[in-house]
Amino acid sequence: MYERPKLQSLTPSTTPTQDADGLSPLVIRASNLDLTFQTNDGPVHALKDVNLEVNKGDFVSFIGPSGCGKTTFLRCIAGLETPTSGALSVNGMTPDDARRARAYGYVFQAAGLYPWRTIGGNIRLPLEIMGFSKAEMGERIKRVLNLVDLEGFEKKFPWQLSGGMQQRASIARALAFDADILLMDEPFGALDEIVRDHLNEQLLQLWARTEKTIAFVTHSIPEAVYLSTKIVVMSPRPGRISDVIESSLPRDRPLSIRDSAEFIAIANRVRDGLHAGHGQG
């Protein structure tokens, strides 16, 4: 099932820099990926013939209607689902080995903070599990709280925070153990648009500061276009990739970029991809 990456020089450990001309190291590589769920109503073809390469430092969005397999694909990358056939590698390892090596942080749709732990305690959870020293835990909690703009909330309980702040805390929790990859499954899906805009802006700043590779599942076209360097348009039944768009927008993006002709052109291409997928399905 697992296929060793063909170009050894492209493993992330060798070339930490990002080049625009395709020499960036591969972080995620999927080829001919298939996944069929066996359900009581018969088999469901969740992913069909998925091919994708994600470079280090990319911000990749997966967009598509419900049932297109975008979340399933993200869970495959995380090693939470196992593909039926095809090859998938994360940091040059199988997804399961990458999970064991704690290669990624995962942000779920709901913040899912433990109500009996403070914000600091929630961020400490992965650090406790991974066996960090006490001094290092405190230092890391301070650092990631600063990254998500939640200084001073360490001792607060989750119910004392708004939904947007809780989701930021869950992002901090995913950042705390310094994984290179951040997997985000519709993290802002349940938030209102004003909060979402604000968090999108913050996420871009965070991405710029940390140089992480981010895979981001969303329903929203503007969100996908605003955030991504690469937009993967998916369509349902069976779940597959219908278009991959390399964004021509600059990395430094104010919110106002959404009014530019270039942004609208990319958004239109995403919309066309979604429509085409629907037509075939």
């Binding site: 999970r99 749709q109 899912g112």
Partner: peptide
């Protein structure tokens, strides 16, 4: 399920 998945992403043990 989500909370259990979260622990799996940390590769935590059963006793943790």
């Amino acid at each position: 399920g989500m909370q259990l998945d979260l622990l799996r992403t940390y590769h935590s043990s059963n006793s943790q």
